[in-house]
């Protein structure tokens, strides 16, 4: 279970317009949406953005339940944010006084807004990972970082590292399972003792895991060299996800949304 979870992230397979967008477009749109959320400064803006976010969820065919699963902790944060802002935000229109705390209308508005922003931000980010596999994300990231490689950002290397990590996570987890079983066969009890003792209990698990990881790294680097790997320069990318016109349209819409939010704030 853990293995599959890590491999697919929280990918929810479905055939929807959101799934079909290229990963690089979705990453850009997510960033734009987040910026817009923080640029917008009144209920019209926030409401519009929330509506756009919910529409995106509906179009994606990802059930609300799947999103909700990843949101539980975030909701606690949202409530905390709301409460903090509610009592801390300076304002003149006092609605209620509780001892030292004053509850103001400004605080209420601002607290609600902050909570909503945070909530929508996480919903939208979840939508990205729910509709895009980690491999597609890696690929999208490489495409986006490519221009930055001219100023020294190791775009190819970052993408390569992420992809190797994705490749080896399941293998290493399997290995970990095996090590746990083997040390249990030698009488190891991982749940015994106080915290210090428990940390110590992990030594027989972690040492072999690291030894194996280093050996793997060594083997893998030889295997890559043997296949003529020499970094990103001069390398073909076999599978390039083509930027489609629908990506352009989607990006344009969100840029428009951002422009609207900025205009509204400035005016």
């Amino acid at each position: 279970m853990l293995k599959e979870k890590l491999l697919l992230g929280q990918y929810y397979p479905a055939d929807s317009p959101v799934h079909r967008l290229t990963a690089s477009c979705k990453i850009l749109v997510t960033i734009i949406y987040m910026v817009a959320l923080f640029v917008a400064d009144d209920w019209l803006g926030w409401g519009l953005l929330a509506a756009v976010g919910l529409a995106a969820v509906l179009i994606s065919k990802v059930p609300f339940k799947a999103i909700w699963r990843g949101m539980k902790i975030i909701v606690i944060f949202c409530v905390l944010t709301f409460l903090l802002n509610l009592f801390m935000y300076p304002g003149d229109h006092v609605l209620l006084t509780l001892g030292r705390f004053r509850l103001t209308a400004e605080g209420l508005t601002y607290g609600l807004a902050m909570a909503l922003r945070l909530f929508m931000l996480v919903v939208f980010a979840s939508l990205l990972t729910l509709t895009t596999t980690p491999i597609q994300l890696t690929d999208g990231l490489e495409t986006l970082l490519k221009p930055a490689s001219r100023i020294g950002v190791p775009a190819h290397e970052i993408a390569m590292m992420m992809s190797i990590a994705l490749r080896f996570i399941p293998t290493i987890l399997e290995e970990f399972d095996r090590i746990v079983l083997a040390q249990r066969a030698r009488g190891a009890d991982l749940k015994q003792g106080n915290i210090a003792q428990r940390v110590k209990n992990f030594v027989p698990l972690l040492v072999p895991l690291f030894v194996a990881a280093f050996r793997r790294a060594d083997d893998l680097s030889q295997a890559m060299e043997a296949k003529c790997y020499r970094g990103g320069a001069g390398r073909t990318r076999w599978k390039v996800v083509k930027w489609q016109s629908r990506d352009t349209v989607c990006l344009a819409l969100f840029l428009l949304l951002l422009a609207g939010a900025i205009l509204e704030r400035v005016l």
Binding site: E175, Q183, R186, V203, P204, V207, P208
Partner: peptide
Amino acid sequence: GLVFQYPEQQLFGESVFEEVAFGARNQ
């Protein structure tokens, strides 16, 4: 007692003594 396949992949001890003593200590 179970000796796993390729058991040397589970070695962790600083010394042969520590390595071998592990099971007895757990007992």
